[in-house]
Deep mutational scan, measured.
Amino acid sequence: MTEYKLVVVGAGGVGKSALTIQLIQNHFVDEYDPTIEDSYRKQVVIDGETCLLDILDTAGQEEYSAMRDQYMRTGEGFLCVFAINNTKSFEDIHHYREQIKRVKDSEDVPMVLVGNKCDLPSRTVDTKQAQDLARSYGIPFIETSAKTRQGVDDAFYTLVREIRKHKEKMSKDGKKKKKKSKTKCVIM
């Protein structure tokens, strides 16, 4: 069974824990209790493949930012979460993405942009803004509501699919490099 290491990042209060708990335990946590770091595991079937999701729910508070490099190193894919009623959390996505790329030393890291709290009427981040940002990053965008469960499975499952595509691409690139290195030079 394939294991996928997913990391949920975003500013404090955007609903990272609520999304994760909704996926794992099928219930909505409405009281806000700032996370330092929590880890969850769940076995699911995605596109006919049974897999184990190892999900790291991270601290959004700035005082825990020193811990970010460590979990970013171990993560295979990242859910970059903002709240649709919090423009600052949307603007912060850029910083999370840049930090992930720096730590992973790669421009090509599996990510999904997630606009959470889409059940709320007080939207300050337009869907088109988020779609445009995701398009500019070359990553999928999904709106979710941890409260109603809308888009929750889709967000995590899409990230797994992005990781699969990335692994497939990397193995193809690896095979191309191996083929090239088999060419021999004969000096007579």
Rank of each mutant, 00 (worst) to 15 (best):
63 E>I: 02
63 E>Q: 08
63 E>H: 01
63 E>V: 03
64 Y>R: 02
64 Y>C: 03
64 Y>D: 03
64 Y>L: 03
64 Y>T: 04
64 Y>A: 02
65 S>M: 08
65 S>C: 08
65 S>L: 05
65 S>V: 08
65 S>Y: 08
65 S>F: 07
66 A>D: 11
66 A>G: 14
66 A>E: 07
66 A>L: 09
66 A>F: 15
66 A>T: 10
66 A>W: 14
66 A>Y: 12
66 A>S: 13
66 A>M: 13
66 A>K: 07
67 M>N: 11
67 M>F: 15
67 M>P: 04
67 M>W: 12
68 R>V: 03
68 R>N: 05
68 R>M: 03
68 R>G: 08
68 R>S: 07
68 R>F: 03
68 R>Q: 06
68 R>C: 03
69 D>G: 06
69 D>N: 09
69 D>P: 10
69 D>C: 03
69 D>K: 06
69 D>R: 06
70 Q>K: 14
70 Q>V: 08
71 Y>T: 13
71 Y>E: 08
71 Y>L: 03
71 Y>W: 07
71 Y>S: 14
71 Y>K: 14
71 Y>G: 15
71 Y>D: 12
71 Y>F: 07
71 Y>R: 14
72 M>D: 04
72 M>F: 05
72 M>G: 07
72 M>E: 04
72 M>Q: 07
72 M>W: 07
72 M>A: 06
73 R>F: 06
73 R>M: 09
73 R>L: 08
73 R>Y: 09
73 R>W: 06
73 R>G: 11
74 T>I: 07
74 T>F: 07
74 T>S: 12
74 T>A: 13
74 T>K: 15
74 T>E: 14
74 T>P: 05
74 T>L: 08
75 G>F: 08
75 G>M: 04
75 G>Q: 05
75 G>A: 14
75 G>K: 02
75 G>V: 09
75 G>I: 05
75 G>Y: 10
76 E>W: 14
76 E>L: 12
76 E>F: 11
76 E>P: 03
76 E>Q: 11
76 E>K: 05
76 E>C: 15
77 G>P: 00
77 G>V: 13
77 G>C: 13
77 G>D: 00
77 G>F: 12
77 G>R: 00
77 G>H: 00
77 G>T: 03
78 F>S: 01
78 F>N: 01
78 F>W: 04
78 F>G: 00
78 F>A: 01
78 F>V: 04
79 L>F: 04
79 L>G: 00
79 L>Y: 01
79 L>P: 02
79 L>R: 00
80 C>N: 02
80 C>H: 05
80 C>G: 04
80 C>T: 03
81 V>A: 06
81 V>W: 00
81 V>F: 08
81 V>D: 00
82 F>V: 14
82 F>N: 02
82 F>M: 14
83 A>G: 14
83 A>V: 03
83 A>P: 11
83 A>I: 01
83 A>S: 12
83 A>K: 05
83 A>M: 04
84 I>F: 14
84 I>H: 15
84 I>C: 15
84 I>K: 13
84 I>G: 15
84 I>L: 15
86 N>G: 13
86 N>S: 11
86 N>V: 03
87 T>R: 07
87 T>G: 13
88 K>S: 14
88 K>W: 12
88 K>C: 11
89 S>E: 05
89 S>G: 08
90 F>Y: 11
90 F>R: 10
90 F>T: 09
90 F>G: 05
91 E>V: 05
92 D>R: 10
92 D>A: 14
93 I>G: 03
94 H>R: 14
95 H>S: 05
95 H>L: 04
95 H>G: 09
95 H>A: 12
95 H>V: 09
96 Y>L: 15
96 Y>T: 06
96 Y>G: 01
96 Y>V: 09
96 Y>S: 03
96 Y>I: 15
97 R>L: 15
97 R>S: 09
98 E>L: 02
98 E>A: 06
98 E>T: 04
98 E>P: 01
98 E>G: 03
99 Q>R: 07
99 Q>L: 15
99 Q>A: 11
99 Q>V: 11
100 I>Y: 02
100 I>C: 03
100 I>S: 02
101 K>E: 10
101 K>S: 08
101 K>I: 07
101 K>C: 14
101 K>Y: 08
101 K>W: 06
101 K>F: 06
102 R>S: 11
102 R>G: 05
102 R>T: 06
102 R>V: 05
102 R>I: 04
102 R>A: 12
102 R>E: 05
103 V>Y: 06
103 V>C: 07
103 V>H: 09
103 V>R: 08
103 V>L: 10
104 K>N: 14
104 K>C: 12
104 K>V: 11
104 K>Y: 07
104 K>S: 12
104 K>W: 14
104 K>M: 12
104 K>P: 04
104 K>A: 11
104 K>D: 03
104 K>R: 14
104 K>F: 12
105 D>A: 08
105 D>L: 06
105 D>K: 04
105 D>W: 04
106 S>I: 13
106 S>D: 14
106 S>H: 08
106 S>Q: 08
106 S>E: 13
107 E>S: 12
107 E>P: 06
107 E>N: 11
107 E>K: 07
107 E>A: 13
108 D>G: 06
108 D>E: 09
108 D>K: 06
109 V>P: 04
109 V>W: 06
109 V>E: 02
109 V>S: 03
109 V>R: 03
109 V>M: 07
110 P>Q: 02
110 P>W: 00
110 P>C: 03
110 P>M: 02
110 P>V: 03
110 P>A: 04
110 P>H: 03
111 M>Q: 01
111 M>V: 06
111 M>C: 04
111 M>D: 00
111 M>H: 00
111 M>G: 01
111 M>A: 02
112 V>A: 03
112 V>T: 02
112 V>S: 00
112 V>M: 04
112 V>C: 03
113 L>M: 11
113 L>Q: 00
113 L>P: 00
114 V>L: 10
114 V>G: 01
114 V>C: 06
114 V>P: 00
114 V>H: 00
114 V>T: 02
114 V>A: 03
115 G>Q: 07
115 G>A: 14
115 G>L: 13
115 G>D: 03
115 G>W: 08
115 G>S: 08
116 N>D: 05
116 N>P: 01
116 N>F: 01
116 N>K: 02
116 N>L: 14
117 K>I: 15
117 K>C: 15
117 K>G: 15
117 K>D: 11
117 K>R: 13
117 K>F: 15
117 K>V: 15
118 C>M: 11
118 C>V: 12
118 C>G: 11
118 C>D: 11
118 C>N: 08
118 C>S: 10
119 D>I: 02
119 D>Y: 02
119 D>T: 06
119 D>W: 02
119 D>Q: 04
119 D>R: 03
119 D>M: 03
119 D>K: 03
120 L>P: 09
120 L>T: 10
120 L>S: 13
121 P>W: 09
121 P>L: 11
121 P>C: 08
121 P>S: 12
121 P>I: 09
121 P>F: 10
121 P>A: 12
122 S>F: 08
122 S>K: 08
122 S>W: 08
122 S>H: 09
122 S>D: 13
122 S>P: 10
122 S>N: 12
122 S>Y: 09
123 R>V: 12
123 R>W: 08
123 R>E: 15
123 R>H: 12
123 R>A: 14
123 R>K: 12
123 R>S: 14
124 T>M: 11
124 T>D: 13
125 V>T: 11
125 V>K: 11
125 V>E: 14
126 D>E: 10
126 D>N: 09
126 D>C: 09
126 D>I: 06
126 D>L: 07
126 D>T: 09
126 D>W: 07
